[in-house]
Design a protein around this nucleic acid. Structure first.
Length: 582
DNA sequence: TTGTTCGGTACTTGTAAACG
DNA sequence: CGTTTACAAGTACCGAACAA
């Protein structure tokens, strides 16, 4: 029960004794001399001076040699802006605790502070309350106790819009225990999600603060434990002593909803691709950047975060994953953390009026496309003359093809996510589907495996964000009607010589889709099988009756002379499909 | 042994800078 | 001036390494 936590390690003990490490000196030595009274920690600047800078220099930089060279002026993740802000009382208490050495930490409170007999619901509720209410003894991301989850839903089998609400971090999933579950949800409604924007901001701030202070708390405990061992044995600490303590974070993976634990130091003898110190530094760095952004009330993109420390992250994708996992762990939305992505999707319409929060109207045209704004920037969407159809296309080359000028079609809109759709595009589509329940939504994608896959993201949701709060309810499910391009209709709509050969990767991809997604609609499976059978694929451009990249295609897609073009089969195809469905 | 994580690679389109 | 390359922000799969 109280056996010491097992900590994996391949960790070279620092040259300086652990207890005289600069960071610890700052946390312990100085504080022994000067323990600030509670009211002196009121201002954020005070707190930053109290430890965050030291933490930054030592705790966030992996190379000891960088400790002295890293400028605390350059990186100050948790330094607070001038804007007045009062940290919650429990945080002040935490900081005070972190500034003192406890007399003797009880082993039971070291890492596994959740009662071992706790049910999943109790634990989840405990985890949530621990940092929201400030009554915590520990933080959820310090635990390794597995939380019972429902298996990740198959995106192809269950539209996310009809999935039960879930928050793997805080909501258990014991079937039949509705009461307990309801309690948790009620609790979330009250103090977790927040009734107002201020409440949400408070929760976000509290979450990020707790991540950062959790690091300090665990560090404090580890040091205390080592001090205790040394005092008891009256001798120097051995390497095994050092490895018996450590720091843990368990973030929820946005893809599968499971906890992934980062443990420092690494297990002895093991040399992981990324040392634990680097992985932990990344999490703390990103949490601190997000924290600063929330306090300043600004906005930050993942790309911004990446460029603040390219050496630490190496690749953009590293930042993407940690940001999304942190947000998933909090169970909130990306916009709550003031993290945004550059717009990618486009919209063209002759019917919609989109009013932004600023009061301005988003300029929309029938022949050219406009960047889709972030969901949080949209105040209202109206269609004064109605909205009969929305056409979702894989590529943006169709927005200027003159479809919206065709008199045979009523008022409509064309939307593209330019390949796999980003969050803003999915959110806009969901909003349109909800605002205009009678509107038909059609999809036109390439007749290749990736086209089918992109269709599945619109229809059933992104597998990569299966557990992301942002993506809940976004998939269109049955609302989306697939009008092409279909492999089985090649002979009707195009010429065989316009088909393109399937690449090896695409063949493997299609085969995998057929075998690994048993719940995929039969029609999709049939199309994939046909592609594999003839070893050919087709792009949307086949509807123009020309091979891609020809002059005629250019004219067709650019929208020029669209009225005169005798071979404007693309518009005819779409008009036929949409008019046929309506 | 099994499941997870990480790094590599590929896909979508448009833009900007570098280069011949 | 036209072409190439890198980058942007999403998405995906695969295999090796690692953890439980």
């Amino acid at each position: 029960m109280s056996s010491p936590p097992h900590f994996p390690i391949s960790f070279t003990p620092p040259h300086t004794p652990f207890s005289s490490h600069p960071l610890l000196t700052s946390l312990i030595g100085e504080k022994r001399k000067r323990t600030p009274p509670a009211d002196s920690v009121d201002s954020g600047d005070e707190r930053g001076d109290d430890g965050s800078n030291e933490l930054n220099d030592d705790g966030f930089v992996s190379e000891p040699s960088q400790v002295s060279s890293a400028s605390s002026d350059e990186i100050q993740p948790v330094s607070l802006p001038e804007r007045s802000y009062s940290p919650p009382a429990w945080l002040l208490e935490d900081l005070k605790l972190a500034s003192r050495l406890p007399s003797s930490p009880s082993p039971s409170s070291s890492m596994e502070n959740v009662p071992s007999q706790a049910t999943a619901e109790e634990e989840c509720l405990y985890q949530k309350e621990s940092w929201v209410s400030g009554t915590h003894e520990d933080y959820p991301w310090e635990k390794t106790v597995p939380v019972v989850h429902e298996p990740p839903p198959s995106p192809l089998s269950t539209p996310r819009s009809i999935l039960p609400p879930h928050n793997p971090s805080y909501l258990g999933s014991h079937a039949g225990d509705e009461e307990s579950r309801q309690d948790v949800e009620d609790s979330m409604d009250e103090d977790f999600q927040g009734d107002t924007e201020d409440d949400t901001e408070y929760v976000v701030r509290t979450f990020l603060e707790s991540v950062l202070t959790s690091f300090l708390r665990q560090l404090k405990r580890s040091v205390a434990q080592l001090e205790k061992i040394r005092a008891e044995r009256c001798k120097k600490l051995s390497a095994s002593d050092l490895f018996s303590v450590g720091i843990k974070f368990a973030l929820i993976n946005r893809e599968n909803g499971k906890h992934q634990t980062i443990t420092f130091p690494d297990k002895p003898g093991k040399q992981p691709v990324q040392p634990a110190l680097v992985r932990m530094s990344r999490v703390l760095y990103i949490a601190s950047v997000m924290y600063q952004t929330v306090l300043e009330g600004g906005l930050v993109t993942k790309r911004d975060i990446f460029y603040r420390n390219v050496l630490l992250f190496g690749k953009q994708r590293v930042v993407d994953k940690i940001v999304d996992d942190l947000i998933c762990t909090a169970g909130l939305k990306r916009q709550d953390f003031r993290v945004c992505a550059t717009s990618k999707g486009l919209i063209a319409s002759n019917a919609l009026v989109i009013v932004l929060n600023t009061g301005e109207e988003l300029p929309l045209f029938a022949t050219s496309s406009t960047l889709i704004p972030q969901e949080e920037r949209i105040a209202s969407i109206e269609a004064p003359d109605g909205l009969e159809w929305v056409l979702l296309v894989e590529k943006d080359s169709l927005t200027g093809a003159g479809i919206l000028h065709d008199k045979r079609l009523g008022p409509g809109a064309i939307i593209t996510g330019k390949g796999y759709p980003d969050l803003s595009t999915l959110q806009l589509l969901r909003r349109l589907a909800d605002t205009f329940p009678e509107t038909h939504i059609y999809a036109l994608v390439d007749a290749d495996p990736h086209g089918i896959d992109i269709l599945s993201v619109y229809t059933f949701g992104s597998r990569a964000n299966a557990f992301s709060e942002d993506h809940i309810g976004l998939p269109l499910g049955d609302r989306l009607e697939w009008i092409g391009v279909k492999a089985t209709e090649w002979s009707k709509v195009g010429r065989y010589e316009d088909l393109l050969p399937l690449g090896e990767r695409e063949i493997a991809f299609a085969t995998k889709m057929c075998t690994a997604r048993p719940d995929m609609p039969q029609e999709w499976r049939r199309e994939l099988a046909h592609m594999l059978h003839v070893h050919r694929k087709a792009e949307i451009q086949i509807l123009c009756g020309t091979a891609p990249n020809t002059d005629e295609l250019e004219r067709c897609l650019s929208g020029s002379k669209i009225e005169e073009s005798p071979s404007n089969r693309l518009v005819e195809y779409i008009v036929e499909r949409i008019a046929g469905h309506s």
